[in-house]
């Protein structure tokens, strides 16, 4: 009961913007936890092309999940907290979040592209080093990087909101 009341107190002290960031983070994590384990399991099949139908189904169900969870979380926030215009602190924290998320995204994209190019530069060595050359897996790793950087952006902003409050 004490934990619940402390949680309610913390939530009521947050701005609508901060609550939306928590919602964004939750949706990101839920979508990633739902999509990627199934996607990578499907791709591990030898005839991964046979799993294409399942992949499309997975992509559609993930989009629906994200929309449904997004609406389910956003409606109570909109009712509870009056949406307000972003102020200078919001913009500053958003810029810091974007900057750090961009650096992370750049690092992961360069890492994935770099290892994929290795096969072209040194033919035959990719399989020995365990590098990934499957285009579908590379595409998913890029998608994972995108989701990861988006999560980093939310986490960085929330960190500053919590520290600066």
């Amino acid at each position: 009961m004490k934990v619940l009341s402390a949680l309610m107190k913390a939530l009521s002290n947050m701005s609508a913007r901060e609550l939306n960031l928590w919602a964004e983070l939750l949706i990101n994590i839920l979508v990633a936890l739902y999509y990627f384990p199934i996607a990578f399991r499907l791709m591990q099949k030898d005839e991964w092309i046979l799993a294409t139908g399942a992949m499309i189904g997975l992509a559609i169900s993930t989009i629906i999940l994200a929309i449904v969870v997004g609406i389910a979380i956003s409606i109570p926030i909109c009712i509870w907290k009056k949406p307000v215009k972003k102020d200078e602190r919001d913009y500053q924290f958003s810029a810091r979040g974007s900057m750090i998320a961009y650096a992370a995204l750049f690092f992961f994209v360069m890492l994935i592209i770099g290892q994929a190019m290795f096969e072209g530069l040194c033919p035959g060595i990719a399989s020995k080093l365990g590098l990934i050359t499957n285009p579908l897996i590379i595409a998913h790793l890029l998608l994972l990087s995108l989701m990861f950087s988006s999560t980093i952006k939310s986490v960085v902003q929330l960190f500053f909101y919590r520290r600066g409050y």
């Binding site: 947050m14 701005s15 200078e88 602190r89 909101y161 520290r163 600066g164 409050y165």
Partner: peptide, 13 residues
């Protein structure tokens, strides 16, 4: 600004 921003300014954070 939001009340939260003003609170952060007032607390010198």
């Amino acid at each position: 600004v939001t009340r939260q921003t003003l609170n952060a300014i007032e607390a010198a954070k």
